[in-house]
C-alpha cells in the first residue's frame, strides 16, 4: 500500500512520527525500533545551550498515562549537531528539530544554527512546554506571542516550520491562525495538559513542580477534539498528537483532519510501538478498502 503523506511542507513515507520528548534524540529508540520505518523523528527539545532540567521527581504515573515535569533537560544545539545528527542522518527518515527558548530570541538562534545542516528536514517550534516557566505559562497560550516567534523563525529559514501548540488555552484556534499567518507550514497539537499530583499524607506535590504535563491514552479524547476543532476551522496542516497507542487511534486523528500523527507516551512503555502502530493502521485501511492514508484524511462525517 502507498503509505506516503504530505504534511507541513514535508513528504513523509508514512504519517507516523516520533513525538519530541518521548524518543530522546532518536538514537535511544534505535535498539528497539527500526527508525527507517517511521515517517519522521522529532528530537527532544533543543535550546542554544545545554540545560539541566527540573529536579526529581519528574514523573508520576496516572490512570492510562503519566504526568511529567522534565523541564527540557538537553544537550543543546551544538552538541546535538556534533554528536547526534551524524548518527541520525544514516536513517532513511526525516529529522525534525524541536526548537526551544527561554527568551524568544533563543528559538531563533536554534533555527538559525541548525537550518544549515542538510540532515535537518524542518523545525517544530516548541511554543508549548508547560514545565519551564512559572505556573505552566508558554507562548502558545497567546496568539500574539506565538505569532512573533513563528514570524521571527520564518524570516530565518525556508525549511518546513511547524509550531507545537498547547491545549491549555481558551484561544487555541486563534493561536493556530496566528501561527499560520506568521508563516507556519503546520501546527502540531496537542502538547501535554497541565495537571497536578498531590500526596495527601505529606500534603505536598508528588513532583518537583506544582504543575506538570499529562500525556498518554488518558488524554486521547481531549486531543481528538482539539485536532478536530483546529483542522475544521483553520486553513493549516495539522499534526495530531495525544495518547495514540494503536493503528485505530491513528486513523481517528486522520479522519478528524490531521495529516500525520505523532506517537508519544506509548514509546516509553513499548519502545517498538511505532512499527506496530503503523502495521495496524495499514492493515485496518486495507481491510476497509482504502488505497492510501490520504483517502481518509479529513473525511469525518460528524454525528
Amino acid at each position: 500500500m502507498d503509505t506516503r503523506v504530505k504534511v507541513g511542507g514535508l513528504d513523509l513515507k508514512n504519517p507516523i512520527i516520533l513525538a519530541s520528548g518521548t524518543a530522546g534524540y532518536g538514537v535511544e529508540l534505535a535498539p528497539f525500533l527500526d527508525l527507517n520505518r517511521v515517517g519522521a523523528v522529532v528530537v527532544k527539545g533543543l535550546y542554544p545551550y545545554e540545560r539541566e532540567g527540573n529536579p526529581p521527581p519528574r514523573v508520576w504515573e496516572t490512570p492510562c498515562g503519566l504526568l511529567n515535569t522534565i523541564g527540557l533537560q538537553g544537550v543543546g544545539m551544538e552538541k546535538f549537531a556534533r554528536e547526534y545528527l551524524p548518527r541520525l542522518e544514516k536513517y532513511d527518515t526525516r529529522i525534525i528539530v524541536n526548537a526551544c527558548g527561554e527568551e524568544d530570541e533563543e528559538y531563533l538562534r536554534v533555527v538559525d544554527y541548525l537550518q544549515g545542516f542538510d540532515a535537518v528536514a524542518g523545525f517544530e517550534l516548541n511554543l508549548s512546554c508547560p514545565n519551564v516557566r512559572e505556573g505552566g505559562r508558554c507562548p502558545a497560550m497567546w496568539p500574539q506571542w506565538s505569532y512573533e516567534i513563528v514570524k521571527g523563525a520564518r524570516g530565518l529559514t525556508h525549511k518546513p516550520l511547524w509550531a507545537k501548540l498547547t491545549p491549555n488555552t481558551s484561544a487555541l484556534v486563534e493561536v493556530a491562525s496566528a501561527c499560520r499567518e506568521a508563516g507556519a507550514d503546520a501546527v502540531s497539537l496537542v502538547n501535554t495538559y497541565l495537571g497536578m499530583a498531590v500526596d495527601f499524607r505529606t500534603r505536598r506535590s508528588r513532583l518537583s513542580t506544582l504543575f506538570a504535563g499529562l500525556s498518554g491514552p488518558a488524554i486521547k479524547p481531549l486531543a481528538l477534539r482539539a485536532v478536530y476543532t483546529v483542522a475544521s476551522s483553520v486553513d493549516v496542516d495539522v499534526v495530531g498528537i495525544g495518547g495514540i497507542a494503536s493503528g485505530e487511534d491513528v486513523l481517528e486523528f486522520l479522519l478528524v483532519g490531521a495529516r500525520a500523527v505523532q506517537i508519544g507516551s506509548i514509546n516509553l512503555r513499548e519502545p517498538s510501538a511505532a512499527e506496530r502502530i503503523l502495521e495496524e493502521a495499514v492493515s485496518l485501511l486495507q481491510q476497509e478498502g482504502y488505497n492510501n492514508f490520504n483517502e481518509i484524511i479529513g473525511r469525518f462525517e460528524g454525528v
Partner: peptide
C-alpha cells in the same frame, strides 16, 4: 533507585544529580 518512566534513556524522567 529512582522513579522511572521508560528505563532506556528516552524520557529523562529518572535523572539524578
Amino acid at each position: 533507585e529512582t522513579r522511572m518512566a521508560c528505563g532506556f534513556g528516552a524520557c529523562f524522567g529518572c535523572a539524578v544529580k
